[in-house]
């Protein structure tokens, strides 16, 4: 007989404004991920359970949630590797829950938009802009960000200060402030040169602990701070 596991899932119904913990026991399949287990519940046990999903390969950033007290992606977490027969699942903390494990990311995206995260280049693009490997390496980590909001939810500062941009948005700021092709590098630095931005970071580094892509947002924020200081010394800011 297949081994069974029990999922204790924190649920929320917006129409009833009610939350509760629901238990589901399912058969464990070798290699089964938490995301597969959740789909198994929807397709065969209880179709009312809600969560986000898409790539199931840890690249789209949809399925960040809390699994046995740890913030991670459901799609790259194997049930058997958790080492418990009872698995507790909750939505990301400190974000408004819309339904069960689905949280509101609009406020997060508004912060992302607020730093104007795009590369500005007014040169004609008849060929590519040249970029050295060293220069590209400066943004190698930040461009890996999948905007899964794990770090945003984990950061103790975003929890207490609604105006703080948070680690993911500041990682995007690092990406555009250090890309030597971007004509808006200084503007981006100015946008995060306050306590709502990079100067607000207290380097608790919860972001770096939870990032599923190994980006180390706390280090990216340090790089921004150093750049701000350098620009200030040069009288550019």
């Amino acid at each position: 007989m297949a081994k069974q596991v029990t999922f204790k899932i924190k649920r929320y119904s917006p129409s009833e404004d009610k939350s509760w913990v629901q238990e589901y026991t399912i058969d464990l399949r070798p290699g089964m991920t938490v995301l597969e287990a959740l789909w198994n519940i929807v397709r065969h046990v209880d179709g009312s359970l809600s969560f986000r999903y898409s790539c199931r390969g840890a690249v789209c950033g949809s399925c960040a949630m809390v699994i046995n007290q740890a913030i991670t992606l459901a799609c790259h977490t194997q049930v058997a590797m958790l080492g418990t027969d009872v698995i507790e699942i909750e939505p990301l903390p400190r974000m408004k829950v819309l339904k069960d494990l689905v949280v509101d990311i609009e406020a997060f995206l508004d912060k992302y938009k607020s730093i104007d995260p795009h590369l500005k280049n007014t040169l004609p693009h008849e060929r590519e802009l040249l970029q050295t490997r060293d220069s590209r390496a400066q943004i190698n980590d930040a461009v890996k960000c999948i905007l899964c909001t794990s770090c945003h939810a984990a950061c103790p500062l975003t929890a207490v200060d609604d105006t703080y941009l948070g680690p993911a948005v500041l990682t995007a700021a690092q990406r555009f402030a250090f890309d030597d092709r971007n004509e808006n590098r200084d503007e981006i630095l100015k946008k995060v040169n306050d306590t709502e931005g990079a100067l607000g970071c207290r380097t608790v580094s919860r972001c770096t602990e939870v990032c599923p892509k190994g980006i180390e947002p706390s280090i990216r924020i340090k790089e921004i701070k150093a750049q701000i200081k350098k620009h200030a010394n040069e009288g550019k800011l």
């Binding site: 590369l119 693009h125 008849e126 802009l129 590209r136 890309d179």
Partner: peptide, 22 residues
Amino acid sequence: IPRVYEMESWGTPFSRLASGRI
């Protein structure tokens, strides 16, 4: 050819050759 150059000019971080090209 123009579509790839356009994406690069819009910011796509491609890997780079030693020459700095895509």
